[in-house]
Design a protein around this nucleic acid. Sequence first.
DNA 1: AACACGATCTACT
DNA 2: GTAGATCGTGTTG
Length: 180
Amino acid sequence: MKLTRDFYSRSVLTVAPDLLGKYLVFHSPQGKFVGEINEVEAYRGIDDPASHAYRGQTLRNAVMFGEGGYAYVYFIYGMYDCLNVVTGAAGVAEAVLIRSVIPIEGEEIMRKNRHNAKHLTDGPGKLCQAFGITREQNGIDLVTSDVLYIEDRGKVITQFQSTPRIGINVAQEKLWRFCY
DNA sequence: AACACGATCTACT
DNA sequence: GTAGATCGTGTTG
């Protein structure tokens, strides 16, 4: 079943590991894509210098300041889009970066979108390219949308790792990357 | 108006 | 292991 507002409205450090083993679903014009989430990172506005929201609200990060359950998609390094899920209450700037999924459905089209690269969806830029997710999807409400959402299919992840986040050189003491 | 850089990936050594 | 690609965004002048 589709994850509800209550799921996303909790603290980012609770939601992030809870997203492991959930299923990202995207009905694109190309077809249906499904991937099992197996790596995420938590970002928190206040007290987290690695977060886009740390220095306050801007045009780009505005979605992070809204209520939980919305998609925050940003463009990085002049080439790639990355997908986040906003968490917490309205006014609290938190989000979970979806770093990696396991292809479940739509793998053939993913391969095509990725130009036959060997690693299909094991990175935040890669999975967006494979699914065809871009800033067009920024601001979509994952709770009410029938196009982009996350499903619970009953899988429970009890054993997972916590490590420093990838690609940042501050707040290394925060073990906010979760994977299994 | 101009500039520096980033929650990345690929290719090549 | 490391360099280069490539451009939107936020900040500064």
